[in-house]
Write a protein that binds this DNA or RNA. Structure first.
Length: 286
DNA sequence: CGGGACTCCTGAGGGC
DNA sequence: TGCCCTCAGGAGTCCC
């Protein structure tokens, strides 16, 4: 599920429902995520209150009383809340029945307000890790991340400093140390909106290009968050609702279709860049 | 430094 | 129905 908008939408629904609650039970059904769940996982976070829930890039951060619980969803991870006393609303599909443990539900966190937070991840590329609160500024996964794309730090001055590298723009935008939170879908859409080829080299971008890229990155992320993220296969927010931004994709997954720009007679092409699919219009993206 | 190939893992979908 | 192949929102490593 995992690019910035989907994590942000998940964070917001979690914040609304389980912030300030206490973790009163943890059940681990599969320890083998991206990193193995350690023996001390349970004892480190049991009976701790969730003081805050935040997001950095594609990471979710649970600020507990004594620990930091860091989560990353990989390619297919998601978090779902089950409310045991309100099955009428929340038992909308197989993820939601507390009496049946589906194959890919790996961790259940029972909270003291009747909600259970379930981590589901088909491919198990996601992970949970625990840190001491004093380590918050020293977490390796967070330390090297570039600025948040929606922050003021991500501006023309910063961008201009980074484009002297002889690298293509697709890879620069995918590089989490340059800007953190963009993934394959949104990079494709941003480049289309900016009329820039994914293969264009960074050192050939002019100031207009940079302005367009920054503007479209911020705009597309904001719209997607507003639409509840993109549900391509089965992304849901923590309350089981799908997002709708996938209806607005103009290039991602649109191979061989005509370009959606009225005046453009181009076709959407698919190429591989660093083994990831890149979709672009062969006419209007240069 | 940069990028291509490959890895982790499971499931969906297409072709035959 | 079944088998085989390719591909998928991430990200790290190895190699040239």
């Amino acid at each position: 599920m995992p690019e910035l908008p989907e994590i942000e939408v998940t964070k917001r629904s979690l914040f609304k429902k389980i912030n300030k609650t206490k973790i009163i039970d943890i059940k681990i059904y599969n320890k083998n995520l991206r990193y193995k769940i350690t023996q001390t996982f349970y004892k480190n976070i049991i009976n701790q209150k969730i003081l805050n829930i935040s997001r950095r890039s594609k990471y979710l951060i649970f600020h507990l009383k004594k620990k930091i619980l860091l989560a990353h969803f990989g390619m297919s991870g998601k978090i779902l809340l089950i409310k045991s006393s309100d099955k009428q609303i929340y038992k909308t599909n197989f993820y939601y029945d507390l009496n049946f443990i589906p194959k890919h539900n790996h961790i259940y966190f029972t909270l003291n307000n009747d909600f259970t937070m379930v981590y589901n991840d088909i491919r198990r590329f996601g992970f949970f890790k625990i840190y001491n609160t004093t380590q918050i500024n020293n977490i390796s996964f967070l330390k090297n991340l570039g600025p948040e794309p929606l922050s003021k730090k991500f501006n023309i001055k910063y961008f201009s400093k980074c484009i002297r590298r002889k690298k293509n723009i697709k890879n620069l935008l995918m590089d989490q140390t340059f800007v953190s939170g963009l993934g394959n879908i949104y990079v494709n859409e941003v480049l289309f909106m900016s009329k820039i080829s994914p293969l264009k080299l960074c050192n050939r971008l002019n100031e207009t290009d940079i302005k367009k890229l920054i503007f479209n990155i911020k705009k597309i992320l904001k719209i997607s968050i507003h639409k509840g993220g993109s549900s391509i296969k089965d992304y849901r927010n923590a309350l089981g609702k799908t997002g709708s931004f996938q209806q607005f994709f103009r290039v991602y997954g649109q191979e061989n279709k005509n370009c959606s720009r009225i005046s453009c007679k181009g076709k959407i092409k698919k190429i591989l860049i660093c083994n990831r699919s890149s979709f672009y219009c062969n006419k209007c993206q240069n």
